[in-house]
Design a protein around this nucleic acid. Structure first.
Lengths: 202, 202
DNA sequence: ATCTACCTATCAAACGTTAAATAGACAAAA
DNA sequence: TTTTGTCTATTTAACGTTTGATAGGTAGAT
């Protein structure tokens, strides 16, 4: 019988984190026990403590990994050529697709907005969002030179993310249809709204 | 010495729920123990079980109360006179103020988006949001007759709520300033963005 | 022979929940 | 008026379970 389930510690750590991320995303820090994680990985609870000193560290490593994965993805989202309007359109399409692809990052992000302390939120801001935030802010300045770029980037992100956040709720609200969960539909709606506004004069 | 802390059961139930709401908002269902709630109210843990059969029921009654309080507030948010643009402006201003006034409703709402089952989300949609959702959807139809009113109402709500949701994070992102947390500043930004769009042709 | 990854077994604390008892309120019976 | 009995809000104490965490041992690789 095989004694070691993984060839080396790194593989075990990665396997644990990969199992922990969806669990923490779905139930939150207090909603997941070390036994839940151990069972998902297929090892004993005590083994977890061979690789991580405590639950908090395992959680922090898990969100750091989930955020690092996404930070890499976000860095390729902003197009470099075309008019500002074209680049905004492309950004929204890619950002919407990226965020809807796996819900775990988005749920962990939402949970951190609720539960994260200053240290964790600072990490999230600086390590994950900052690089592209700056680029999108520049794009916003091109589009509205006199506007507040910070507010603008938050609004653009919020438009996309709120549609995704409310997916489980919207089916119970008037006019909710399955196609509203399609990233392309969301991206097109958001882009049109931003570019033309309500007046539709664009 | 007084035996009963409250004159009657109704007072006790209300006191318990009023203490439970902020606790659940801040830490979530699994993050709050019955002992935490009992201590906040100033009674014993066993007393909680005299008024509620179990923790789940106490939680459900708490969010139902928080949502009922807010549903009443929301029903007075939509103005009845003026041009569609004026009514939209007024709605955003009132909605932003209402949502920023106490964060507990907003946090419970966010948590339900993450953790709520079908039953709870249906309750939230039908009992809290539906009435005004319909009215704002009508307003959206007046503003954009050919647009998708459902998508539009979600976008308007999302623009406001995402600014509030990200309050603890935005201070770490480029250009974040304290005034961005002012409901009036948020409402003005959102209104301008919606009415004029990025092109600013309004 | 040592080291590494894992196990079983266990700990103390915290958890949701319950049982049994008590002290006051209030109304009927004396 | 006093006594009695019932009801309600509350208590202390404890139940069994689950939790995060640890101790000590074992099998296989180097």
């Amino acid at each position: 019988m095989a004694k070691s389930k993984f060839l080396n510690s790194t593989d075990a750590v990665n396997a644990i984190i990969n199992e922990a991320i969806p669990l923490f995303a779905k139930a939150g820090f207090t909603g997941v026990s070390m036994r839940d994680i151990a069972q998902a990985v297929g090892i004993s609870t005590a083994s977890l403590y061979h690789h991580f000193p405590d639950k908090q560290t395992l959680y922090l490593r898990s969100i750091a990994q989930a955020f690092a994965d996404k930070a890499q993805g976000i860095s390729t989202v902003l197009a470099k050529k075309g008019t500002p309007e074209q680049r905004l359109t492309k950004f929204i399409a890619r950002f919407t697709k990226l965020m809807s692809q796996d819900s775990h990052f988005r749920m962990l992000f939402q949970r951190e907005l609720l539960d994260g302390d200053e240290t964790r939120l600072r990490l999230l801001a600086e390590q994950v969002f900052q690089p592209q935030f700056v680029n999108v802010a520049k794009l916003a300045k091109e589009l509205i030179p006199n506007g507040d770029a910070h507010l603008m980037v938050i609004s653009i992100s919020g438009l996309v993310l709120f549609h995704l956040e409310t997916t489980p709720l919207r089916q119970f609200l008037q006019g909710g249809r399955a196609e509203h969960n399609d990233p392309d539909v969301i991206a097109r709606h958001v882009t049109t709204l931003l570019l033309k506004g309500i007046k539709g004069c664009g």
